[in-house]
Simulated scan of single mutants.
Amino acid sequence: MTSTLHDEEYRAFIIRLIALRKATGVTQAQLAARIGKPQSYVSKSERFERRVDPAEFRLIVLALGHDPAAVFAEISEHLRSSS
């Protein structure tokens, strides 16, 4: 089975999450503390070494102070317009 970690759309999804974290002014360590995980958890997610599932996406976006539905819609629109 082919790993989806390196799928072009998944990579674009994570890149948008990284941009959101940075735009919010939150470090990997700060985000990790907010979600109760080690910094390596965030780092591995951002380096495409572990997959972010929908529940984790929601937790991360809430920890960054944003609305998960709005962020998902933005990411979906970005993916739609780039394909």
Rank of each mutant, 00 (worst) to 15 (best):
T2G: 08
I35P: 09
S43Q: 11
K22D: 10
L5D: 01
I15P: 03
F57W: 07
I75R: 01
F13A: 00
T2R: 15
M1E: 06
R34P: 02
V52Y: 12
L5T: 02
E56D: 10
S3R: 12
A23C: 09
A55R: 13
E8R: 05
R58V: 14
D7E: 04
I75L: 00
L59M: 14
L59C: 07
T24R: 15
R16H: 13
Q30E: 14
P38G: 03
K22L: 13
I75T: 01
S3K: 10
F57K: 06
L59I: 05
Q28Y: 09
R16F: 07
L20S: 00
M1S: 12
A70M: 05
Y41Q: 04
T27Q: 04
L79A: 04
E74H: 11
A33D: 14
Q28T: 08
R51G: 00
A73S: 13
V52E: 04
Q39H: 07
R50K: 11
I75H: 00
R51C: 01
D53Y: 12
I14C: 03
D53Q: 06
P38C: 02
A73T: 09
H66S: 12
E9Y: 08
A33P: 08
A55W: 10
L31N: 05
L31E: 05
G25H: 11
F72Y: 13
A70C: 02
E74L: 06
F48C: 01
L79T: 03
I60M: 14
V26I: 15
G65H: 06
D53P: 05
R34V: 03
A12G: 10
R16L: 07
T2P: 15
S40M: 08
S83Y: 09
L17I: 15
V71R: 03
G25S: 08
K44E: 08
V61L: 01
E8P: 07
L62K: 15
R47C: 07
Y10P: 01
H66N: 13
T24D: 04
H78F: 14
S45Q: 14
L64Y: 09
P54E: 09
V52K: 06
I75M: 00
S45M: 15
I35M: 12
S3M: 05
S43M: 06
F57P: 05
T4F: 09
A63F: 04
A69K: 12
R47S: 11
K37I: 03
Y41I: 02
F13Y: 08
I35F: 10
F13K: 00
E8Q: 05
T27C: 04
Q39P: 02
R16I: 01
G25K: 11
T27Y: 06
A69E: 15
R11Q: 06
E56L: 11
L59S: 12
I60E: 09
H78I: 01
A70S: 10
H66T: 06
L59Q: 14
L62A: 06
G36C: 00
T4Q: 07
E9S: 11
P54R: 12
V26H: 06
Y10L: 01
A19P: 04
E49R: 15
T4H: 10
A69L: 11
I18T: 14
F48N: 02
S81H: 13
L62H: 13
K44V: 00
V61T: 05
Q30F: 05
G36L: 02
T4N: 07
A73D: 15
L62Y: 08
S83P: 08
K22Q: 14
F72C: 07
R21F: 08
I14R: 11
H6S: 14
L31Q: 05
Q30L: 08
L59H: 08
